[in-house]
Design a binder for these strands. Structure first.
Lengths: 194, 194
DNA sequence: CAAGCATGCTAATAGCATTAGCCCTGCGGA
DNA sequence: TCCGCAGGGCTAATGCTATTAGCATGCTTG
């Protein structure tokens, strides 16, 4: 048998590509598809991953890091409302360009699995990025957590509804997202005064 | 064989109960579990439903209608900011009390399936309820759609993150949700002035 | 050059949805 | 009252999924 020359990274990369290309969300990822793409029998994958859930978490890590990377790049050199708008726009753009990966990034880490500590760390990075942006609003420290949660909720919710075709009306979705950003900017500023 | 006396409604009701009681989201619903609960072999269920997806949509319909019912009840007799806060609170309360059903309510209807027209109609009712609440803000008609989307996104996103234990910090989540409602009330009011 | 480990394989198990085809039970009409 | 038939249950079978066990082979290192 010619060795396929796989590795954990190669398998994860294949999975990432499959999720990214195939329509539909990340829970449609199947070992059969990965194995076929790799030109390998399904059980062979277990030499590189410990389970499907493990693979999912690895994919989530890749997706989450890329999301954070792009978000950070979009906000660098900006601050205040400008940074917040750029952050929201970057997140939405990532979710639109890579819907499968965006949803893949949402898997929660296993509490007892040490390998998913990286995933938890990446998730923390994402939250920390939002917090960093919001620090430009001079919020009282006790309000920062609230603001982070409000911003995350709003952007995440919008992205999900948009992806699920939850916006039936033909009205311009871009404009609605702009309205969302405006509400967030104003709202966070108001939180800073309270 | 003693007849089990099933019916479509009975099967759907069983599925609703299973989703509601079992932890975890709605996509863990299994025909095996429903059949076991009904005291019947799995294929027998097909006399009452056409597929698992069909059952899922039926459950979604029940869940969505209940969500709308509770939301409507919470907002009756209120208007403006008061109504908006009550609406958000009711949605979150439903999602917390019935996490499985809340997630079940999010399945999107099949475009070509006539049976899921009811589901689409219920979804429309939900959106319409939000719109009705927001009409109390004297928004320009062209902004109403934006406001509806902003509110839906924010509340939905918050509920999802909360359910996914996405709020790592120990800070009071109730207070954060209150901040979200405040941001929405202020934001919608600002939208009305723009 | 030899040994061993990494990496592939096949076979088997178990859970899932779905379809086909059978059979009994209870009800309606003659 | 009896006969028929349809509704509603069943078993068997198919094909998909993940996962585990155990085996073989080839690369690599001592």
């Amino acid at each position: 048998m010619a060795r396929a020359g796989l590795s954990r990274d190669a398998v994860v990369d294949l999975a990432v590509r499959l999720i990214d290309e195939a329509p539909g969300s990340a829970d449609r990822l199947t070992l059969a598809a990965v194995a076929a793409e790799a030109g390998v029998a399904v059980p062979s994958l277990y030499k590189h991953i410990t389970s499907l859930a493990d693979l999912r978490r690895a994919v989530a890590l890749v997706a989450l890091r890329e999301l954070v990377r792009r978000s950070a790049a979009a906000t660098v050199g900006r601050s205040g409302p400008d940074a917040l708008r750029a952050l929201g726009t970057a997140i939405r753009a990532y979710a639109r360009e890579h819907p499968g990966l965006y949803s893949a990034a949402q898997v929660s880490p296993e509490a007892d699995d040490p390998a998913s500590a990286e995933l938890a760390a990446a998730a923390l990075d994402a939250v920390e990025l939002v917090a960093a942006v919001l620090r430009g609003f001079a919020l009282p420290e006790t309000r920062l957590v609230d603001a982070v949660r409000v911003v995350r909720s709003a952007v995440h919710g919008f992205v999900l509804l948009e992806r699920a075709h939850g916006f039936g009306m033909p009205e311009d979705v871009d404009r609605s997202f702009d309205a969302l950003l405006t509400v967030l900017v104003d709202g966070v500023a108001a939180l800073a005064r309270s």
